[in-house]
């Protein structure tokens, strides 16, 4: 992944377009951490493809200096998987929000995880729908009042960490956008991981979710790195992930050290990226195909 070319700084990964997020939005911290992670890993912008869905946070590809695809609501992982399998030399990073990834895109998350496509999925989780001006999301807490739940939410939230582990994800972590240094380290680990990685990042919405604010998390987040947590123990990971009270754990919950990505399991990719193959088929291949038809 490291190349011999000039070392780039985090600021080299700024696109030149200023984010249109609300002042104080948690997504700034995520963008910042991702840019730092790319710089620290020595990545080159043209070798990175960021792919997002739709939502406030899905505007991220426009703000980072890399190739980008700003796609459909909930479908970023499908686009990202196709891109990665087509050109596995690219570093493919999918980004989006909790509604995009855990709601409308939930099916793709399950299957991209079990498929273990070598992509990093960063979910900016603010527990609310922001771009549509404030409705519950799949991670909104019980009783939460929003425009779509004026009398309080009567549905329980999902836990992205346990869901991803159960789906077979091989790198599952949680971060808090208010802690850029820690978030950067988690993202770096995710990009370096060979296989599918989910990084769920608390990224508070300052406009539509005043319950789960920056201060709310600051008071509660506790790093797993300080707790002698065994990242190879998925059961312990799940126990740590469901803790939700005065302590909310962040950090790397689970990593499969033997992870083998889909690309590594698929012999078709042994000859290099599909995107740089010569098109058309050979005489031998033709002969074999026609032979079977006769």
């Amino acid at each position: 992944m490291t190349t011999g070319t000039i070392e780039l700084k985090a600021s080299d990964f700024k696109s030149g377009i200023n984010p249109d997020w609300c002042p104080g939005c948690g997504d700034f911290g995520v963008l910042n951490s991702l840019q730092r992670a790319c710089a620290e890993l020595g990545l080159q912008p043209h070798q990175i493809l960021t792919v997002s869905g739709i939502g406030c946070s899905s505007n991220l590809p426009g703000y980072i200096n890399s190739y980008g695809m700003h796609t459909l609501h909930g479908r970023s992982l499908a686009f990202a998987s196709g891109a990665k399998l087509s050109n596995h030399d690219l570093t493919v990073i999918a980004t989006g929000g909790d509604g995009d990834g855990y709601g409308i895109g939930g099916n793709h998350l399950t299957h991209t995880a079990r498929r273990n496509v070598d992509i990093t999925y960063i979910v900016m989780n603010n527990q609310v729908y922001g771009l549509t001006t404030g409705q519950i999301s799949p991670t909104s807490r019980l009783d939460m009042k929003t425009k779509s739940t004026p009398f309080g939410n009567v549905e329980s939230p999902i836990n992205p960490i346990t869901s991803a582990i159960m789906s077979g994800a091989t790198y599952v972590a949680r971060a808090f956008s208010g802690d850029i240094r820690h978030t950067t380290a988690i993202i770096k680990g995710a990009i370096e991981h060979k296989g599918f990685s989910l990084v769920d990042i608390f990224s508070p919405c300052v406009t539509f979710n005043l319950d789960n604010s920056n201060d709310f998390f600051k008071e509660r987040v506790t790093k797993l790195e300080d707790q002698n947590h065994d990242i190879g123990d998925w059961k312990a990971a799940c126990e740590k992930a469901i803790e939700w009270g005065s302590t909310i754990n962040i950090g790397l919950f689970y990593q499969d050290p033997d992870s083998k990505s889909l690309g590594a399991r698929e012999p078709v990719l042994n000859d290099g990226p599909l995107s740089s193959r010569t098109l058309g088929i050979t005489e031998d291949q033709t002969k074999k195909l026609l032979g079977r038809m006769m």
Partner: peptide
């Protein structure tokens, strides 16, 4: 949905 969007993702990187 995944099939169609994956195909677009692959096509974007230059693969038919």
């Amino acid at each position: 949905i995944a099939a169609a969007n994956m195909v677009i993702g692959a096509a974007q990187t230059g693969t038919r």
